[in-house]
Design a binder for these strands. Sequence first.
RNA 1: GCCGGAGUGGCGGAAUGGUAGACGCGCUGGAUUCAAAAUCCAGUGUCCGCAAGGGCGUGUGGGUUCGAGUCCCACCUCCGGUACCA
Length: 979
Amino acid sequence: MKTQDQSDTSAGAYDFRQIEKHWREYWLAHGTYRTSAPGDVGYDPAKPKCYVLDMFPYPSGDGLHIGHPKGYIASDIYSRFKRMSGYNVLHPMGFDSFGLPAEQYAVEHNVHPAVATEKSIDHYRDQLQFLGLGFDWDREIATSHEDYYRWTQWVFLQLFESWYDADRMWQDEGGRTIRGRATPVVDLIASFDSGRRRLSPADRQMLASLRSDADDCTWAALTEAQRQHVINNYRMAYQKEVTVNWCPRLGTVLANEEVTAEGRSEVGDFPVYKRPFRQWMLRITAYADRLLEDLDAKGLPDGRGGTFELDWPEPIKLMQRNWIGRSGGGRVLFDVLDPVTGSARSAPLEVFTTRPDTLFGASFMVVAPGHPLVTGGDSQFAVPAVWPGGTDPRWQGDSTADPREAVAAYTQAAAQKQVDNRVAEDAKEKTGVFTGIFASNPVSGVQIPIFVADYVSMDYGTGAIMAVPAHDDRDHAFAEKYGLPIIQVVAAPSGAEEVCFTGEGTAINSPTDGVESAYAITGLTTAEARAKIVAALEAAQLGARAVSYRLRDWVFSRQRYWGEPFPLANHPDGYPVVTDLPVLLPDMQDFKPSTSDDPDTPVTPPLGRAGQDWTQVDVSGVSCERELNVMPQWAGSCWYYLRFIDPHNEGAFCDAEKERAFMPVDLYIGGAEHAVLHLLYARFWHKVLFDLGHVSSPEPFKKQFSQGMITADAFTDARGVYIDIRKVSFDSGGDPLHTETGEKLNRFRGKMGKRYKNGLPPEEVGEEYGVDTLRLYEMYMGPLEQSAPWSMEGIRGMQRFLQRVWRNLVDAEGVTRIDTEPAPAEMRRLLHGTIAVVGEHLEGLRFNTAIAALIKLNNELVALDRVPHEVARTLLLMLAPLAPHAGEELWSRCGFGLGDLAHQNWPTFDANLLVQDTVSLPVQVNGKVRATIEVAIDTSDTELQSLVLSLENVRRFLPETGEIRRFIVVPGKIVNVVV
RNA sequence: GCCGGAGUGGCGGAAUGGUAGACGCGCUGGAUUCAAAAUCCAGUGUCCGCAAGGGCGUGUGGGUUCGAGUCCCACCUCCGGUACCA
């Protein structure tokens, strides 16, 4: 599959290997893509800036394959286009080099992650440079380098030493009023010290475990350790016991996604246990509303006196909104009835509901297995010793024992139950046990049973729900199984009868207006009924308007080695203290997690074995043990875009003036897999830094774009073993065969990568076809946001295109074919039309159609003996961002300049040239095209009508009378005769 | 399951509600060549037809419209995410 021109070394040949090598080296030697910042020689503050950012890669030991650079090529083209359009472009690259992939690679290959990482980075840099990507390499960073991660630790301390003052009203530079602000913890402590702030009920509840007099003690009476526990409840970075999926055999915690339906690890198939675990958390939920609002906010300040709004694809915004999952509704208090006396206990059961309007349809309640009502955490809520008379046997669980045993057994089983597999979650049968306790519906007074069931989670809302089986699918399934009443209280608008209608409609079977009730909602719409019920509940002190979020706080610690150490230590009195920066990761040869077969083995992070020199640290004269967890890989990628602006600053994470000059990022390109988590986490950190005055804009990424994957066919033999795509050929029928054995292979479409042996390194393709060809082909495969399959046949078309451009401008002897005569009118019209289209499509990241327009223009040149000067020059300018090596070579060969194509001005077009006097109109009869007519652009409709109706092929389709019903003219587009 | 996206010739894809298939690959025929590669020219959704022209055609089934690949409703299939892969 070698191309034929390899041996052609004549003066006029397009020798891409030599050309690409030459310009690659030229650009690096001349610093062609270096960006100047405030304070640099040659920085021009009057020039508009454009910050084009890629999601930086984590450097795996396998190197890049041709699927990886798709986004980098796109951002490179855009950067070059913007530079030519007069912008000071910042386009940096770096490496997300901490984290699990690097650690796992190190384990597999038995090398230290620090060594493996450096090697991988060198390899990646070579590969990226090979692709002719115009990064400013002076700005390269790596998250695992000490001069980077010391600032990651610094940013973490900003979070640790601040709290979210939710009621604070303030204005940003753009004049927007914002509610809530991250505020230094020292201010909080000062307000406690001065008495301006008192301990909250939540503080007292937490203190109850530490002091007997928590109910009425004051801040002044607290010990330092107790005060620190209070402050922990406020910090943006705080410690909390959370339940995780613990796999002792792997010595790691797993995501739900990494646990199989059988409750075993995906990797290795080992048992996984639910286990509570003290973790560092980040209070992202405090920012839920602002993360939501700013997606659509107008007038975000840009730090330079201007404003901006987010230009993100709507689907990505939608995913973020859904992830945050704000739902408005109400909290409702249900009286819990004493099983013996039947009277209400003092502590009611609180639920959150998004549908207060369905309150009259609530026929039972469900609490989560961890709820205090059933864990005995609150003596108020004791489960009775005997089943109430007439309890349905189905409600009593598997045991025939008393309610306490049944509930305890169910709760324990739920806890033991290894992680749920979501696929099965909703489809699987609901289970639950009656607690023996009844509640009273606050609006109707009806007694309803309380169940414990694992379809309710402690993580969302209050861990308890009111069940409305007529209008909630899960409640419905549960009610059907346990024979509970199903009461319709909402009528579907269309009258469409669904078994379980969950949409909005009209309230029915509730009190009717005229009846003496504040809850008279029958006949009201869902929205009206919801508002009325909540207002009435509030008046009766039985509930309140409330908002709930799906978003949870962020578990921020990992029991790993290859990550940023926390700049914290544990004081002997049991609270965290800040240590000096930087906290260097100790050099350990044994960095693997400790594994065990015993689920109860204490969890010991690898850093626990670092030796006392490292683990013990003196803080203000007290010997403390360092925090042994490390940060997740997200940490480094949450702020790297700021470090690129000022990568070598030793005194600050980023110089304030430079930050103002370059933020926000104008275009952020990355994989669609980061659409929710990474983008949300980075936005969160940025907002904290914004609140604290460290950055000047409230959002980091002005425009966001997610590129699709490059997929590739993969092949397996009869045993199911993957066969390297280099060893696959095709028979005449197109069926895949093994090159060596001739065996017939199976083909399927998959992600490109090492696993399927279907990836190719860019060097291999670049050597064979040329880097410019590779760049063009990846952009030409289809819309940037879509996934597309790699094809070794398709790439030839782009190579042909470049060769054709070359031959149009250079003859076989290497002499240019430029004509000094001006271009003919038709050629100029085509040229200027192409400028208009290409510019528009590059700006819109529609590279496939931009390239198509260039191909079309170039194809018109093939028939010419010589190419007019203006056409040649303009064609090269438009080609420059896409195929920079060939562009520079031809630019200098044609004598337009030397090595300066990247800094030329983008061509402008003359709109007058694009106006045409006549237009070719398709003529439809009843929506079917029957003819085409060439008319002057200003032909009147009546004139047009008589012309059209006289057309032979139109008349054939008219009725005998010649009568028409309508005559529709869409100016310049189409004519439709309706008969 | 839930959230988001995508389904158009043999293939990748193009198309502000206005001629479906731009452009590229592949294929067919021709020119050039001793021959081949490369290159150039012409053709190429499908069915009927010598042609002119006509029928059908954008995952499936409905709907809105003078007109639907595009908008609405209901499905099917595939892809991404689902919080400790990032």
